[in-house]
Design a protein around this nucleic acid. Structure first.
Lengths: 110, 110
DNA sequence: TGCTATACCTAAGAATCTTACATATAATTG
DNA sequence: CAATTATATGTAAGATTCTTAGGTATAGCA
């Protein structure tokens, strides 16, 4: 399991990228997808995930729709056009960060 | 400039790695070295750096020596043997984290 | 003389998580 | 069929880890 401290500041990027790749997802589905893709290395906690989803919706980055599955409800999230821009920006930001880190961690490859 | 939120959880790794590569450094020197190596992309603030150095010293990861340069004093830090182990651990942890992130961000390369 | 660089440090507050709850339906297992 | 686990959403208190904003002092330069 990845040290959860390293995830700080990156959870939003993860959520946005998954929504870019999958059009529409609900919260629980996001937690499972992250686990699957990362071979259990990254596990989102609900206490972190739901507040991020609500914040992004409030910012106009995501829109929602409620689906009824039997007697249970799911809340599906999808990116708005502004959301699409935000994904690109966040992923680029992450890559610049990783490259900069590698200038320190692998000075011989710099 | 790298979004400082992304640095969260990685400042200790940066400091430890620099000390592995340079035997002995003082605080201000660390801030300058990080700026130089990353072409100004990463800039450590003193408010973050000094508490980390003090914490690592308290944990036995670093030892210190005071040098007098004219009327000015410098506090040099160097790794203890436990410190050397910690660097390896932290750098490895970071690389696992980056690989896991890439499983999400570049699913086609996974 | 005043500004910038060097050099150390602390403390209040902000941001962003984790942990621990609370609620409820559906599926599986002993 | 009762109990446990999985599915599904959410909130709130507290912890961690920064940023921001200060404080102190020497050295160099314009």
């Amino acid at each position: 399991m990845v040290n959860s401290k390293l995830l700080r500041g990156n959870l939003e990027t993860i959520v946005l990228k998954l929504l870019e790749d999958h059009m529409e997802m609900y919260g629980y589905e996001i937690t499972q997808k992250v686990k699957d893709l990362t071979l259990n290395e990254i596990q989102l906690t609900e206490g972190a995930l739901y507040p991020i989803l609500h914040k992004l919706e409030g910012e106009g980055i995501l829109t929602t729709r409620i689906a009824n599955i039997g007697n249970r409800k799911r809340k599906y999230y999808k990116l708005t056009p502004e959301g699409n821009d935000r994904v690109t920006q966040k992923v680029d930001e992450f890559e610049v960060f990783v490259q900069s880190m590698h200038l320190i961690l692998n000075p011989k490859l710099g």
